[in-house]
């Protein structure tokens, strides 16, 4: 229980840091810390496989890409003032509503909301087999659907970048001179053919 209290405190501080820190890199780092603490919580709960996957996927891949984009666009220092004056109060109100909703749900239904025994049967212990049995058994359809969803996201991102690239090319051709390219994050650097 003490361990959980410490971990929960660190996680909450990290999560607050993500929202409150001004520097985007610091906020992203705070998120990394939160995710790593979550992984430790999984280890404490005797679910090492989940912990390893959490670290590899979230902390090791996704957050590195976040930081990559932040650094590539050179976002640093103070965030600019919001363009819409109503955005800040609106964010406070929405956030407050979410917190109120979660708190209300907790008060209305104290105790675990999910079937913890079933979850423990899948994730506790060291085996990858139980997870695979569930993922490729009863949840096969949803597993594939999530895959299709991710693929849709990738295709959409590529489509957006391509569209913008052709538009800039056209604009350049119309202006007859090299214009200023908006900073973009290509999924891969352009492949330059070997000159030799």
């Amino acid at each position: 229980m003490l361990v959980f209290a410490v971990l929960a405190t660190v996680m909450l501080v990290g999560a607050l840091g993500v929202v409150l820190l001004r520097d985007p890199v610091h906020a992203a780092l705070s998120l990394v810390g939160t995710l790593l603490t979550l992984a430790i919580a999984y280890v404490v709960l005797n679910a090492p496989f989940l912990a390893a996957i959490q670290v590899i996927v979230y902390a090791g891949a996704i957050m590195v890409l976040f930081l990559f984009v932040i650094m590539l666009l050179n976002l640093g220092g103070e965030a600019p003032a919001p363009t819409q004056p109503w955005i800040r109060p609106a964010a406070w109100i929405t956030g407050g509503l979410v917190i109120a909703g979660v708190a209300a749900a907790l008060v209305a239904n104290p105790g675990p909301a999910l079937d913890t025994a079933a979850i423990a049967a899948v994730f506790q212990g060291s085996g990858v087999e139980q997870v695979a049995d569930q993922l490729f058994g009863p949840f096969l359809l949803s597993f594939h659907l999530v895959g299709v969803l991710l693929l849709t996201g990738i295709v959409a991102a590529v489509g957006l970048v391509q569209q913008r690239a052709t538009e800039t090319d056209k604009a350049r051709a119309a202006a007859g001179q090299a214009g200023h390219m908006p900073p973009e994050v290509p999924p891969m650097p352009p492949v330059v053919e070997d000159a030799s």
Binding site: F49, V55, I56, A59, G60, L67, G127
Partner: peptide, 25 residues
């Protein structure tokens, strides 16, 4: 002696990137 030893190795190496990455930034 971890049952997920290989994943552990992959996970720790992928976190090690942060050192290089943050140091440069």
């Amino acid at each position: 002696d971890l049952d997920i030893g290989l994943l552990y190795v992959l996970a720790t190496t992928s976190i090690g990137v942060y050192g290089i990455f943050l140091g440069g930034w």
